[in-house]
Design a protein around this nucleic acid. Structure first.
Length: 693
RNA sequence: GGAGUCUUAGCUCAAUCGGUUAGAGCGCCGCCCUGUCACGGCGGAGGUUGCGGGUUCGAGCCCCGUAGACUCCGCCA
């Protein structure tokens, strides 16, 4: 059962490539060797020595010398722009795959390289042992190359190759050869060639992997336990490469736009509102705690007060809340803030950023500017503040139709100032039986908190089927059919409530479920519908706390047009200069223009019921900062994980994070989090109240 | 905090109504094979059916509890 394999297996083979066999260094300062050169010479049987030592290529110091020490202690030199410019003189880096172990990658050889002698290193992807001839697919980060071992060409290496197993790490030297006519493999980029092995060196034997690496059906918890194996798959490597491209495009774009990447503290303070904080006890200050940042919100605003003007950061953020497929306890934001900007400046910047990201990571051109849609319209038409506009099924208002209805439920809602809306699931009648409709009603009740889900089903060649249609007058039916475009084969779903939001939200979810049922999401999978949702409400009334709370955060700027409403106390009507960027029904990010005036901020705190004392305790430092000349400023943060997930076409952000946590916040590979011993807790003045089972 | 789905060989799954010794494919191990690329052929090993309890003549299957994984609600911008 347990298969013990030979380790550190090494085959010593006399080298044919360098008959003289003498080790030699030939340092050259010229350009890289051309592909036609033999890149490596070998000490027979043991080590590989490159003819061009990587370090020697760029060993000469730049003209101004390695001036790190000088720059650090002599401050004025930092302003010597000519000196800085010289530091940007090109440094020739060694080519990645030209190392002591290998001369080329497993995805670099083509027909035109036939005849060259190369050295490859990587993992045994698969092995096909024909007895006298053995094929090994050698895999590295870049791709796969077929190695062929022929007993008549090199018996020793061929004999050794019989023992190779999947995931063994090997190094092979051989000649690039054309495959025999008819045996080319069009599925491989390197499928026209193969390496006829002259030498095989086993760098490390591998145990049998606990699961087949290329099987996408394997349990996620098993893949997480052996994440380093899971990450060897082409899919995961593609995702991580994609993530790198997105981050690189972001840095390039924002750098070119004059933004400075500035780090902010990870050990910071608890946030007065919002999500639960991760706490870190301070050993040096008994009984006190840091918190990990939920976002660098206050720091990025303070950087504006500091006059840095344009800031960004690929920022790790932490929130101790329950997890979902698109939520991790630690996640990454592209965090942006700038001074002397209005809403449209930030939006234009971010449109350009997303265009650059999609172009460089996915090769897709996306049209800008994105459409702008007020929050009220998004809720009214799509039942969501992040509408998926790739398909219709829009919400239609029917309140006026039912004001005098015999159907008491609708009539009382309509007369009492409530709202009745409906959506038409075109062509869903054939897909929804009575039993399924009952299940939908149950789903709406349990998961959406609705009282029920009224529907009318019109099967092809049938009558209107519905528990409520008997109450409708002919005039109501006519109005309904006309306004909804109701035809045979369709199903109508109704939402009715005293308040607008719950009706929209419930129908918004029914809409998405209908779209899924009707295959509209799959059919529109290739579309990229970006849009800005703007004019969010500034405040929301919290029944639990019995006062108004900030929808975004307390520094969000009210719209100039609604300032009168704010001062008149009509808080529900006040809109914020806040905006979310949405792609295909997923919120990519959001931001706002902030309040920079002291009086307006005071007014906001008054509305939020935060008294002077609380202001000092919770926001003292930032209010003090604002008193010293804060510029008008605003910004936005994009969820990097979600963004990469969408570009990668992944279903969970865990697929685009190298080492994610599961839905209980545990890392199944390292078993984090772990218990710590009493001594360690005592040092930070903590005692645990957790019950041990 | 709540709801749902799942847990059978290393992996993916099957096992009729509760009924004989729990099967298959892949993988693994051994032997054979000189043009394979999902290689092929022959042979073999591999199981506390997550765990604990109950019902029953008899439980992988039914019931209760428990652990773990995933999805969703609450929560979270």
């Amino acid at each position: 059962m347990e298969r013990v394999r030979e380790r550190n297996h090494r085959i010593k083979i006399p080298n044919r490539a360098s008959p003289g066999g003498a080790p030699e260094h030939q340092p050259r300062h010229s350009a890289r060797p051309s592909g036609a050169d033999l890149l490596f010479r070998f000490i027979p049987g043991v080590a590989l020595v490159p003819r061009f030592h990587p370090r020697l290529i760029s060993a000469a110091p730049p003209a101004h010398g390695w001036a790190c020490q000088k720059l650090r202690c002599a401050r004025p030199i930092a302003h010597d722009h000519s000196a800085l410019a010289k530091r940007h003189s090109p440094i020739i880096l060694p080519p990645l795959f030209h190392t002591m172990y290998r001369s080329v990658s497993c995805n670099s050889l083509r027909k035109e390289h036939i005849g060259q002698t190369v050295t490859l290193a990587g993992w045994v992807n698969s092995r096909r042992d024909q007895g006298g001839v053995i094929f090994v697919d050698l895999r590295d980060r870049e791709g796969v190359t077929q190695i062929v071992f022929r007993s008549e060409e090199n018996k020793e290496a061929t004999d050794a190759s019989h023992k190779l197993r999947g995931e063994d790490v090997i190094q092979v030297t051989g000649k690039v050869s054309a495959r025999l006519a008819g045996t080319e493999n069009p599925k491989l980029a390197t499928g026209e060639i193969e390496i006829v092995a002259a030498e095989l060196r086993v760098l490390n034997k591998a145990e049998v992997p606990p699961f087949p690496l290329d099987d996408p059906k394997v349990n996620e918890d098993l893949r997480m336990e052996y994440r380093y194996l899971d990450l060897r798959t082409a899919l995961m490597q593609r995702n991580l490469k994609l993530r790198h491209r997105v981050v690189k495009a972001t840095r390039d774009y924002l750098d070119e736009a004059g933004f400075l990447e500035i780090e902010t503290p990870i050990l910071s303070n608890p946030t007065p509102e919002g999500a639960r904080d991760f706490l870190v006890p301070s050993r040096l200050n008994p009984g006190t705690f840091y918190a990990l940042p939920q976002a660098p919100q206050q720091y990025k605003q303070l950087l504006q007060v500091a006059g840095l003007e344009k800031y960004f950061q690929i920022a790790r953020c932490f929130r101790d809340e329950d997890l979902r497929a698109d939520r991790q306890p630690e996640f990454t934001q592209i965090d942006i803030e700038a001074s002397f900007v209005v809403e449209n400046d930030i939006q234009t910047l971010v449109e350009g950023l997303l265009a650059r990201i999609f172009k460089e990571s996915a090769g897709v051109e996306i049209p800008t500017p994105f459409p702008r849609m007020p929050y009220s319209e998004a809720m009214g038409r799509f039942g969501s503040d992040k509408p998926d506009t790739r398909f219709g099924l829009e919400l239609v208002d029917l309140t006026d139709v039912f004001t005098a209805s015999q159907f008491k439920v609708f009539a009382s809602v309509a007369q009492g100032g409530g709202v009745i809306k409906a959506i038409n699931a075109k062509g869903a009648a054939a897909l929804l039986s009575k039993e399924q409709l009952k299940k939908w009603e149950e789903w709406v009740k349990t998961e959406c908190g609705a009282k029920g889900l009224a529907y009318v089903k019109w099967s092809e060649g049938g009558e209107w089927e519905s528990p409520i249609v008997k109450f409708f007058s002919d005039a109501e039916k006519t109005a309904l059919a006309g306004r909804m475009g109701f035809q045979a084969g369709d199903v109508l779903f109704f939402g009715a409530d005293a308040k607008l939001e719950p009706v929209c939200e419930i129908l918004g979810r029914v809409r998405l479920r209908c779209a899924d049922l009707l295959g509209l999401i799959k059919a529109n999978a290739s579309k990229l519908n970006f849009l800005w949702v703007v004019d969010f409400p500034l405040l929301a009334f919290s029944p639990e706390d019995n006062h108004w709370v900030a929808v975004h955060h307390p520094f969000t700027r009210p719209k100039a047009d609604d300032m009168a409403a704010l001062h008149a106390g009509e808080y529900a009507r006040v809109r914020a200069v806040a905006y979310d960027v949405v792609l295909n029904g997923v919120e990519l990010g959001g931001g706002s223009i902030r309040i920079h005036e002291r009086e307006l901020q005071a007014k906001m705190f008054e509305v939020l019921g935060v008294n002077a004392e609380e202001q000092q305790v919770k926001f003292g430092h930032i209010l003090k900062a604002f008193s010293f000349g804060a510029p008008p400023h605003g910004g936005l943060a994009l969820g990097l994980d979600r963004l990469v997930m969408l570009i990668a076409g992944a279903e969970s952000i865990r697929e685009v994070i190298a080492f994610p946590k599961n839905n209980r916040g545990c890392d199944l590979m390292t078993h984090s989090p772990v218990e710590v011993d009493f001594k360690q807790l005592r040092e930070v003045y903590i005692s645990s109240t957790a019950k041990k089972s």
